[in-house]
Simulated scan of single mutants.
Amino acid sequence: MPGRVVEISTDGLHLAVLRGFLVVKDGEGERGRVPLDDIDAIIASAHGLTFSANLLHALADRNVPFVVCGPNHMPVSLMLPVAGHHAQTGRVRAQITAPLPLTKRLWQGLVQAKVRNQGAALAHQGVSSGAFTTLARQVRSGDPTNIEAQAARRYWPLLMGTDFRRDNEAGGANALLNYGYAILRSGAARAVVAAGLHPSIGIHHSNKGNPMALVDDVMEPFRPLVDLAVLRLIRAGVAEVTAEAKRDLAAILIQDLTTTRGTTPLSTCLHRLATSLADSYQTGEPRLDLPLSPLPLDLAAGPGRPMEDEDGADWISDHVDDGPV
């Protein structure tokens, strides 16, 4: 069963662990609890949070990322375990020594998938996407002609309007995208570490200040899922990062995708992709396990189906805010 994304947005809370549960407390006592084994990621976006070392230890044992976001909803810290797989040393060594032709082929596959899925996102909105099919076919090993950037220049005006500019520091749609990508990035980070790979050693991303270069590579094909979820929120009148928006965007990780093995949640697809990447490094053959493309991007009813907790309350993610968990 896909896990939950726990988002902490109320100031001054304390997070601890008790008998296998994440426990959330304030000055008046316990606010709520969630089984640790049900959690895919914790997103901390509030001020004045405190948390115990025992909690971080328990999360690391389960490969659960703890993400701290800044005021613009961009991640500023992501805590992951040092060891996430029994064969980690060999896999990281293969990752470091991977020959350039292999990494260029791997990047080609990721860019092709991303461009095809951007076209699928546009087609979902009734926009002609034939150019994106053509662009995907034109991606060569290593993407030397930067088809990824060419596709992005066409994609954003067609999806979000000609006045839209992607800006990490802006509010509105950009802030929603930041938050959605933070959710996606946390899922990709967990998958990368669980596969025994080092998140800082990227395929294409190589900024010296980016400790999550490989994570950013792995999440690229799935970004259009976030883009469509944000577009749906905007059309519903949700123009800022509200509690409602956070619940919808947190459900991205449980979005069902079609694979060769049937319908599979996005979080599982990330794990399969990361595992296939580790195998590619070790065998020297670029064989990435990606969902069937174009992705089934039917988000008309929202990005995920609400789950129910034991008390019957509706959940899309576990959102600790002004009400009970």
Score class of each variant (00 low, 15 high):
V241E: 06
Q282D: 15
S280N: 03
E240K: 06
P221W: 04
E220R: 02
G284Y: 10
S293C: 15
L290M: 13
M212C: 03
E240M: 04
R272F: 11
G237S: 07
S206V: 00
P211H: 03
I252Y: 00
L295M: 13
T283Q: 11
D279A: 13
T258S: 09
D298R: 13
S293Q: 10
F222W: 01
P294M: 10
L225E: 03
G237D: 04
P221S: 02
P265R: 15
V238F: 04
R272N: 12
G209F: 00
P296M: 15
L233R: 08
T283L: 10
E220W: 01
S206R: 02
Y281F: 14
V218D: 01
F222K: 01
D227N: 04
P211M: 01
L292C: 14
A243M: 07
L290S: 12
R235V: 03
T268K: 12
P211K: 01
L270C: 11
A236G: 04
A239Y: 07
R232K: 14
D298F: 12
D279W: 15
I234F: 09
P296K: 12
L273A: 10
P211N: 06
R247W: 11
T259L: 06
L233Q: 03
A213T: 06
Y281K: 07
L277H: 13
A239Q: 15
L292N: 12
A251W: 02
P286D: 15
P291V: 07
K246H: 14
E240V: 08
T260W: 10
T258K: 12
Q255A: 12
L233P: 08
P294H: 10
T260G: 13
K208I: 00
A250V: 05
L292D: 15
A229E: 00
T283P: 07
P291F: 10
L231N: 03
A278N: 05
V226S: 06
A278L: 11
L270F: 11
D279Y: 15
H271I: 09
D217N: 02
G237C: 10
R287D: 08
I234L: 11
L257Q: 04
L225D: 04
A243I: 07
H271F: 07
R272A: 11
S206D: 00
